[in-house]
Lab assay of single mutants.
Amino acid sequence: MTYKLILNGKTLKGETTTEAVDAATAEKVFKQYANDNGVDGEWTYDDATKAFTVTE
């Protein structure tokens, strides 16, 4: 299944996707991606759209 990450960081904005077996796996991938790019903020998840959002 495809999951999307929407980044609303102070220095990094954009979107990326990942293929994962479930939302928990996608969340781990996205949190590592955000951490690697220096984005740390409030996380939300919308199951209807399979989209995670992180806002700094």
Rank of each mutant, 00 (worst) to 15 (best):
M1G: 11
M1R: 13
M1T: 14
T2R: 12
T2M: 12
T2Q: 10
Y3R: 02
Y3L: 02
Y3W: 07
K4S: 06
L5N: 01
L5W: 02
L5R: 00
I6K: 05
I6S: 04
I6D: 03
I6A: 03
I6P: 00
I6T: 05
I6Y: 13
I6F: 11
L7M: 12
L7T: 04
L7R: 02
L7C: 08
L7D: 01
N8Y: 11
N8P: 04
G9Q: 04
G9H: 06
G9F: 14
G9R: 04
K10E: 08
K10W: 12
K10V: 13
T11K: 11
T11Y: 14
T11Q: 10
L12Y: 15
L12Q: 08
L12V: 13
L12D: 05
L12I: 13
K13E: 05
K13R: 12
K13P: 05
K13V: 10
K13Q: 12
K13L: 07
K13I: 09
G14T: 13
G14Q: 11
G14D: 08
G14I: 15
G14F: 14
E15D: 05
E15M: 12
E15P: 04
E15C: 15
E15T: 13
T16R: 13
T16S: 08
T16V: 15
T16H: 14
T16M: 15
T16P: 03
T16I: 15
T16G: 04
T17H: 10
T17F: 14
T18P: 01
T18M: 11
T18K: 04
T18C: 15
E19Q: 14
E19Y: 15
E19W: 15
A20G: 04
A20P: 01
A20L: 03
A20C: 07
A20Q: 07
A20H: 03
A20I: 03
V21I: 13
V21Y: 12
V21G: 09
V21T: 12
V21M: 13
D22F: 03
D22M: 03
D22T: 05
D22Y: 04
D22N: 09
D22G: 04
D22L: 04
A23R: 13
A23P: 09
A23W: 14
A23C: 12
A23M: 12
A23K: 14
A23F: 13
A24D: 10
A24H: 09
A24W: 10
A24K: 11
A24L: 10
A24I: 10
T25A: 14
T25C: 06
T25K: 05
T25Y: 07
T25M: 11
T25H: 12
A26M: 02
A26H: 00
A26N: 00
A26P: 00
A26K: 00
A26S: 02
A26G: 02
E27T: 04
E27A: 10
E27K: 10
E27G: 06
E27C: 14
E27D: 04
K28H: 08
K28C: 09
K28G: 07
K28L: 12
K28I: 11
K28P: 03
K28V: 10
V29I: 14
V29A: 08
V29T: 10
V29G: 04
V29W: 14
V29D: 04
V29E: 07
V29R: 09
F30A: 00
F30H: 00
F30L: 05
K31C: 05
K31H: 08
Q32K: 14
Y33V: 05
Y33T: 03
Y33R: 03
Y33M: 05
Y33L: 06
Y33F: 12
Y33E: 01
A34W: 03
A34P: 01
A34V: 09
A34F: 03
A34Y: 02
A34D: 00
N35D: 10
N35Q: 15
N35E: 14
D36F: 08
D36N: 08
D36C: 09
D36L: 12
D36A: 12
D36S: 10
D36Y: 08
N37K: 14
N37G: 04
N37L: 15
G38I: 04
G38H: 09
G38P: 02
G38E: 06
G38W: 05
G38R: 06
V39W: 14
V39I: 15
V39H: 04
V39Q: 03
D40T: 14
D40A: 12
D40I: 14
D40W: 15
G41K: 01
G41Q: 02
G41W: 06
E42S: 11
E42W: 13
E42P: 04
E42A: 10
W43D: 00
W43S: 00
W43Q: 01
W43H: 00
W43M: 04
T44I: 08
T44Q: 09
T44N: 08
T44G: 06
T44A: 09
T44S: 13
Y45T: 00
Y45F: 06
Y45K: 01
Y45G: 00
Y45A: 01
D46Q: 04
D46K: 03
D46N: 09
D46M: 04
D46W: 03
D46E: 05
D47L: 07
D47S: 12
D47T: 09
D47G: 08
D47F: 10
A48R: 11
A48C: 08
A48I: 12
T49L: 12
T49M: 11
T49Y: 07
T49V: 07
T49R: 10
T49N: 12
K50G: 05
K50V: 03
K50D: 02
K50T: 03
A51E: 13
A51F: 06
A51I: 15
A51Y: 07
A51L: 14
F52V: 00
F52Y: 06
F52R: 00
F52H: 01
F52N: 00
T53Q: 05
T53G: 03
T53R: 06
T53D: 02
V54L: 12
V54M: 05
V54R: 01
V54I: 11
V54G: 00
V54K: 01
V54C: 09
T55Q: 06
T55N: 09
T55E: 06
T55P: 01
E56Y: 11
E56K: 04
E56F: 11
E56I: 11
